[in-house]
């Protein structure tokens, strides 16, 4: 639907020497390269890459080099650092990584599933209480999850679920924003005629939902999944509050604890840095692979496709 052609770098005219700033770019000069805007964006990109480049370099250094050598000159200790990190308390670091993958993967999948059901119901049925449900949901979008963490802790403590996997997993399945998005995807991508046709063929509503609606909503549901995945992966306060046993920690809480110890044992800093690098890699790969799903038009509340 979008008619704007995207200025990808394909028409690159990079090799040309810098011309005067393109101030004459008025009539007929619409597509002439603007060096100013290209350079501003590249500076933005440089700013965003800087800490990532630094952690890549720093993770190649031994604990001593870290404080003495020039920051952006790589060393050859990456492998040693990884081995050392792996040996730290019997592979605790990799356990944190697995925990994170479990919390984020399972949590986001369940969240997308719950959101798909609820969003479909809100978009395609009319029933008593629909308007009220939707209003409550919208209000729920505004409730900061971080503020819920403490009462959630005390409620879960009463049923003995704190300091378990459930304590981190369960509270993050419900996502009002995910439901809101799923409702919009269902409204925009599932034609009523298809549902009607399915009914005429005698399919049950559940079957219509699973076989017809879910595939049509799939790109949107991937976006819901990604939002929740990143949200859970990023979440620090909830596991920080809920968990006492460091074998249940996700990577964020684990590295935070390691950094805390590092203030007294600076040798741990190189572990923290290597750990930070390794923990970023999966998410960065996930982002690059699934890039095209990140196009949510928050303002219009709909995904243009």
């Amino acid at each position: 639907m979008s008619t704007v052609t995207k200025p990808l770098g394909s028409r690159g005219s990079m090799a040309r020497p810098q011309l005067a700033k393109n101030r004459s770019g008025r009539i007929g000069a619409n597509d002439k390269t603007s060096y100013t805007s290209t350079i501003i964006l590249l500076l933005g990109a440089l700013y965003c890459l800087l800490p990532l480049a630094w952690v890549l370099m720093a993770s190649t250094k031994s604990g001593g080099d870290l404080f003495t050598s020039n920051t952006f000159v790589p060393s050859r200790h990456l492998f040693d650092n990884i081995v050392e990190l792996t040996q730290y308390r019997g592979g605790l670091y990799w356990r944190w990584m697995l925990n994170t993958a479990l919390y984020a993967g399972v949590g986001a999948f369940l969240s997308a599933a719950v959101s798909a059901f609820a969003g479909f119901a809100l978009a395609k049925y009319s029933f008593k209480g629909k308007q009220a449900t939707f209003m409550v949901l919208l209000a729920g979008v505004l409730v900061p999850g971080v503020i819920l963490a403490i009462p959630q802790y005390f409620l879960l403590a009463q049923v003995g679920l704190t300091n378990t996997y459930w304590a981190v997993l369960l509270p993050q399945i419900i996502s009002p924003y995910g439901i809101y998005l799923a409702r919009i995807y269902a409204g925009a991508s599932v034609p009523n005629e298809i549902i009607e046709a399915g009914r005429t063929d005698g399919a049950s509503d559940l079957r219509i939902f699973l076989r017809l609606a879910v595939p049509m909503m799939a790109p949107g549901l991937v976006t819901v999944f990604l939002f929740q995945f990143v949200g859970i992966w990023n979440n620090f306060m909830l596991p920080y509050i809920m968990l006492g046993d460091d074998r249940l920690y996700p990577i964020t809480v684990g590295l935070n604890g390691l950094l805390n110890q590092g203030s007294t044992v600076p040798a741990l800093y190189s572990l923290v840095i290597t750990g930070a690098l390794l923990s970023i890699i999966p998410l960065v790969v996930l982002f690059l692979v699934l890039q095209r799903f990140w196009k949510v038009d928050l303002g219009a509340g709909a995904v243009k496709s």
């Binding site: 200025p7 770098g9 990079m14 619409n30 805007s37 964006l41 990109a45 965003c48 970023i280």
Partner: peptide, 18 residues
């Protein structure tokens, strides 16, 4: 339309969100 390397910059600037 006059910006070059926009695809690259877009991905890199978005990357820290990960």
């Amino acid at each position: 339309k006059r910006t070059r390397l926009a695809g690259f910059s877009r991905v890199v600037i978005f990357l820290p969100y990960a």
